[in-house]
Amino acid sequence: MLAVPVSAINFNTPESTVAEIMADPEYYDGTITIGTIAIIGTLTNISCDVHISEGGQCIAVDTRDRSMFEGFEEGDTVKMIGIFYYKRVRGSVFDPECVIHWPITDSKTVAIPELMENPQAYNGRKITVIGNLTDVRESGMGYRMDVEDGGQYLDIKFYGRTLLEAGTAVKATGIFVGGTMHADTVAKRETLPFGIAIPGFSGLLAAGMLAFALVVASRTIKKR
């Protein structure tokens, strides 16, 4: 099966406010000059024609992909990354690539079955997942990966380089948007021989540290 090419979203795109864009809309017009931008503002009218607002000013948002807005509520502060179009046929509009909660909130480690059963609770948030890498393939500027846990699969886009292969236990961290994780890191999950994970340490180092701790504990007990 051919993968859709990966297109990297730059979550670190510098933020502009609604007021700044409305003060000089021609400068921010993506059809002429600046291209992709990020807007910070408040979601309004989310049940119908979504706008991103600041004070009394607002910009209409293209909502053809409603999955971006699942789990968001009226009044949420968000960061939208995308392109602003000034004076289109139906007026000015912002076409988002993604919508994330702002400031970025970290939901820590989430089980993939829980994520798949309740995706709206984590949409637009930073999460960590652990599972078995079942497929990895080059796609555009990066990789598409499938990670499985408990019979459920998560689609991951990763924009770095990797030597990971299918069958590897991995830990991935990134932002979950519209059913896909955009990963900052995807790494082999190191465990001790009997399955205890030691985050941030290699297997040999972790085993050595544990052995050292057991020796110290044993000597302490003997002295008593």
Score class of each variant (00 low, 15 high):
residue 16 S to P: 01
residue 201 F to Q: 09
residue 88 R to D: 10
residue 7 S to K: 14
residue 28 Y to E: 06
residue 76 D to G: 02
residue 41 G to P: 05
residue 174 G to L: 00
residue 21 I to L: 07
residue 82 G to Y: 03
residue 181 M to K: 06
residue 190 E to C: 01
residue 115 L to M: 05
residue 114 E to Q: 11
residue 162 T to A: 07
residue 6 V to S: 13
residue 27 Y to I: 08
residue 187 A to G: 08
residue 67 S to F: 04
residue 200 G to Q: 05
residue 64 R to L: 14
residue 121 A to H: 15
residue 175 I to H: 04
residue 56 G to Q: 14
residue 107 S to K: 10
residue 157 K to T: 13
residue 171 K to L: 09
residue 1 M to W: 12
residue 165 E to W: 12
residue 101 H to C: 07
residue 47 S to I: 09
residue 93 V to R: 03
residue 183 A to L: 08
residue 224 R to G: 15
residue 9 I to E: 01
residue 48 C to H: 14
residue 75 G to E: 12
residue 32 I to S: 14
residue 56 G to F: 07
residue 210 L to K: 00
residue 78 V to K: 04
residue 168 T to I: 15
residue 3 A to M: 14
residue 183 A to N: 08
residue 92 S to Y: 02
residue 65 D to H: 08
residue 11 F to P: 01
residue 18 V to D: 07
residue 158 F to S: 13
residue 25 P to V: 04
residue 215 V to H: 00
residue 200 G to R: 10
residue 71 G to R: 02
residue 28 Y to K: 05
residue 118 N to V: 06
residue 216 V to P: 08
residue 161 R to D: 14
residue 184 D to A: 12
residue 87 K to W: 08
residue 53 S to F: 09
residue 134 T to P: 02
residue 117 E to M: 12
residue 32 I to G: 03
residue 32 I to R: 15
residue 11 F to V: 01
residue 130 I to M: 10
residue 193 P to E: 09
residue 217 A to S: 13
residue 180 T to M: 14
residue 26 E to I: 10
residue 90 R to H: 08
residue 206 A to I: 02
residue 56 G to L: 12
residue 191 T to Y: 05
residue 198 I to G: 00
residue 180 T to Y: 04
residue 9 I to Q: 03
residue 8 A to E: 12
residue 115 L to I: 08
residue 4 V to L: 15
residue 185 T to R: 06
residue 187 A to W: 08
residue 183 A to I: 07
residue 119 P to Q: 02
